[in-house]
């Protein structure tokens, strides 16, 4: 079949446009507002992938410092994050939202005994759905035993009472070893005349 020059040109142009679009689609990075949801991941304080040693958490006090970032990182994006957590045994629907906003770290305290699970999600716009949940951080809280607590509390109370007793008693009854000397130097009537510490 013979084609006219006009037809040929049109065919070439359409083919070139198709190929260009295909190449651009393959080569260009995914645009930030693509339909595919963004992922968040927990990191260490320096924004690097988290390893077991990096977790700043205190099991006996029940607090944990968490850091997170987009995965993969995207310096141009302004994502929102959502940090949720739950105590092992609670329903997923009962999870507590600990933070929702643009920041990339949070300090969580006051956690009860038990295994806590935290996940973080991200999205690029308020209208987007939240992205998939990150891999969970599992943190087991085990507060000090009440036996150990009350032993230390008892020791503290005893020491406090002992200090108050000695200081108050001595302030009232301790003699001023320089009473005569002070009275001679300062004849004005003061409480040192009775042999007590000044003003005590």
């Amino acid at each position: 079949m013979r084609t006219t020059p006009t037809r040929t040109n049109r065919l070439v142009a359409v083919t070139a446009a198709f190929l260009s679009a295909a190449i651009l689609t393959i080569a260009a990075p995914t645009p930030a507002n693509a339909d595919e949801p963004v992922r968040a991941v927990f990191t260490n304080a320096d924004g690097e992938p988290l390893s077991g040693d990096d977790l700043a958490a205190d099991s006996a006090r029940g607090d944990i410092q968490l850091h997170w970032a987009l995965d993969p990182p995207d310096a141009d994006a302004s994502p929102m994050f959502r940090l949720v957590g739950r105590l092992d045994g609670e329903l997923v629907d009962d999870r507590i939202v600990y933070y929702e906003g643009p920041q990339r770290r949070s300090f969580i305290s006051g956690l009860e005994d038990g295994t806590h699970e935290f996940v973080v999600m991200a999205r690029l716009a308020d209208t987007d759905p939240w992205g998939p949940e990150s891999e969970a951080i599992v943190f087991t809280v085990e507060h000090h035993s009440l036996r150990q607590t009350f032993i230390l509390l008892g020791i503290g109370a005893f020491l406090f009472i002992a200090i108050v007793f000695v200081v108050v008693r001595e302030a009232i009854f301790a003699e001023n070893p320089f009473a005569d000397e002070d009275d001679a130097a300062d004849p004005a009537p003061t409480d040192r005349a009775a042999g007590k510490g000044d003003g005590a």
Binding site: A60, R61, G62, I96, Y98, I108, S109, G110, L111, E112, H143, H144, S145, L146, Q148, T149, F150, L152, L153, I155, G156, A157, L159, F160
Partner: peptide, 24 residues
Amino acid sequence: EESRPMLLSALFPAALMALFNNML
């Protein structure tokens, strides 16, 4: 009470230890 119950607890072990520790 909902999100950080231990902060309200009168039997928070670390806090009770801190009571006299801080005083001393």
